[in-house]
Simulated assay, not measured.
Amino acid sequence: MQFKGLEKNSLIEWPGKAVTLTYTGGCNFRCPYCQNKDLVLDPEKIPSIDGEEIIEHLNSKKKWLDGLMVSGGEPTIHRPLLNFAQRVKEEGFEFGIETNGSNPEMLEDLLGGDLLDRCALDIKAPLNGEKYKAATGTDDGKLPEKVEKSMNLLRESEVSYEYRTTVVPKLLVEKDLIDIGKEIQETENFYLQQFIPENTLKKEYEKVEPYSENKLKRIRKRLKDKFGLKFCKIRNI
């Protein structure tokens, strides 16, 4: 399997773990605020890294690394990910992915094969068709249903997971975030991610002013008080 980027050491992606982070090219979404536009739109222009090179790196740092996190783009559009996950596990490392939740079948295969130890799932908007279309730049009316299935798979599994939402003012108002709270209440971990208006897929989003820190903190408090979220934090502030 081929990858399009590598961070050899990260203490951020997987709380409590030291991991290597790698990126797959290509994505089935076109989120207008996405900051990985080269990975999404032009992955063929980015030099490839062979999966075996990543395995070699993991083994060379076996004393210090706990595992591998695969981000994107969107990892689950690549069917060879299953075999690669198996290789990582065979070498004695934990394996995780960051996903948009649009491919519950792949997620089910990873879980069913005991290949997944950690998953971060992006919830782009409340689970209704129009909001999801706007947030993802797609016309797939079944996306909310697919994302909900992925959410439930994680909730019913024994893997470490988090849900997260990037708070983009042009796309999400406070009510939308409360609606998301209704859909994920009592979840293990939920992060509100501050939107950063830089290098976005659609240039107009670079002019969108993020919500203030105080507003995000107020929304977080409402979510925790109203829905009993066990762990709700804000990132990127």
Rank of each mutant, 00 (worst) to 15 (best):
1 M>C: 08
2 Q>G: 01
4 K>N: 09
4 K>H: 13
8 K>S: 09
11 L>F: 12
14 W>S: 01
15 P>K: 04
17 K>N: 00
18 A>H: 13
19 V>L: 05
21 L>M: 07
21 L>E: 01
22 T>I: 15
23 Y>I: 02
24 T>C: 09
25 G>M: 00
26 G>L: 04
26 G>I: 04
27 C>W: 01
28 N>D: 00
32 P>Y: 06
33 Y>I: 07
34 C>Y: 04
34 C>Q: 00
37 K>C: 00
38 D>V: 07
44 E>Q: 14
48 S>D: 10
54 I>N: 04
57 H>W: 10
60 S>K: 07
61 K>L: 03
62 K>T: 07
65 L>C: 02
66 D>V: 06
68 L>E: 06
69 M>E: 08
71 S>R: 08
73 G>V: 01
74 E>Y: 00
76 T>R: 04
77 I>P: 00
78 H>L: 00
78 H>T: 05
79 R>C: 02
79 R>A: 04
86 Q>L: 10
87 R>L: 15
89 K>Q: 06
91 E>Y: 11
94 E>P: 08
94 E>A: 12
95 F>V: 05
95 F>T: 03
95 F>K: 08
99 T>M: 13
101 G>F: 12
102 S>W: 08
102 S>C: 12
103 N>W: 01
105 E>R: 14
111 L>S: 07
111 L>P: 12
112 G>L: 05
112 G>H: 06
113 G>M: 03
114 D>C: 00
115 L>M: 00
116 L>S: 06
116 L>V: 10
117 D>F: 14
124 K>S: 05
128 N>T: 11
128 N>G: 01
135 A>G: 08
141 G>I: 15
141 G>R: 14
143 L>T: 10
144 P>E: 10
144 P>K: 11
145 E>K: 06
147 V>C: 02
148 E>D: 12
150 S>G: 10
151 M>V: 11
153 L>A: 03
153 L>E: 06
154 L>V: 07
154 L>H: 07
156 E>A: 05
156 E>L: 09
156 E>C: 02
157 S>A: 09
159 V>L: 10
161 Y>L: 06
164 R>F: 11
167 V>I: 14
168 V>Y: 07
171 L>R: 10
172 L>E: 11
174 E>V: 12
176 D>R: 03
177 L>V: 13
177 L>D: 07
177 L>P: 09
177 L>E: 03
177 L>R: 07
178 I>L: 14
183 E>W: 03
185 Q>C: 12
188 E>G: 01
189 N>I: 11
193 Q>I: 09
194 Q>R: 14
194 Q>M: 12
195 F>E: 03
197 P>W: 06
198 E>F: 10
201 L>W: 09
202 K>E: 13
202 K>S: 03
203 K>I: 05
204 E>H: 02
207 K>I: 00
209 E>F: 10
209 E>T: 14
210 P>V: 05
215 K>D: 13
220 R>C: 04
220 R>K: 15
221 K>R: 15
222 R>H: 08
223 L>P: 09
226 K>T: 15
230 K>D: 10
231 F>L: 05
237 I>Y: 13
